[in-house]
Nucleic acid binder design. Sequence first.
DNA 1: CAGGATCCAAACTGATACTG
DNA 2: CAGTATCAGTTTGGATCCTG
Lengths: 126, 126
Amino acid sequence: MVTKQFKGSPEEADLRRADSLAREIFSDVANKWALLIIEALGERTLRFSELRNDVEGISHKMLTQNLRMLERYGLVERKVYATVPPRVEYTLTEPGQALRATVDGMCGWTHQYLGHIEASRRRFDA
Amino acid sequence: MVTKQFKGSPEEADLRRADSLAREIFSDVANKWALLIIEALGERTLRFSELRNDVEGISHKMLTQNLRMLERYGLVERKVYATVPPRVEYTLTEPGQALRATVDGMCGWTHQYLGHIEASRRRFDA
DNA sequence: CAGGATCCAAACTGATACTG
DNA sequence: CAGTATCAGTTTGGATCCTG
């Protein structure tokens, strides 16, 4: 839609594009694996295999896929060392660190309301 | 694992259970639909059909499914009015509001780094 | 070791039909 | 109106095999 006619001002158009872009980014980033990777990277740099261990339950494929996405978005930096065997390190960039701050908030929230949620869940299931 | 032997103290056991529970909650809540619903509910109460409109792109099925999950976790309250036609309203509970605060943070982050991300993406795709 | 490619299972979607 | 249920089609995820 909104392809043939355009009723609003150019500024309105920009806002709409920005909104849909923001929404797209949000949809990509707001998935558990991406956020758990961000959280795992915390302050320290990690290798692919270390991430695989730290982010419990993540598959090889999802790790690769999400790392590519995060790299593409400029949230993590990928550093390849031309050694044998190869060594690849991932580090949060500044935007990545900023995101991590909010993810930390979510983790804190989870722990804070753990008891409440567990109780509510038990109640609901009865 | 950790079923046959248990090496640590009982306190350690509790911490592990809490951690795996926290992780479970995080995994459920940290998906785009749940977070977008939380965000949409913001301060105001919304009906099912209003949510369907506000959370752009969500399917009937995913909306129902996520609302049940959020209700089960005690993050949204579901209020049914026995009228014809029926009216069902969803409101954030206090824990839900607390979560929303962190989701707001993520939304803010998205808008703040919009330009940076878009640029990085373009660079990566080249 | 890192990660691409492949195949199969599970999850999501959209449409539609049915209930209270 | 607000669901539940179901079906077909698409997408996503996991496991495995292969390479530099």
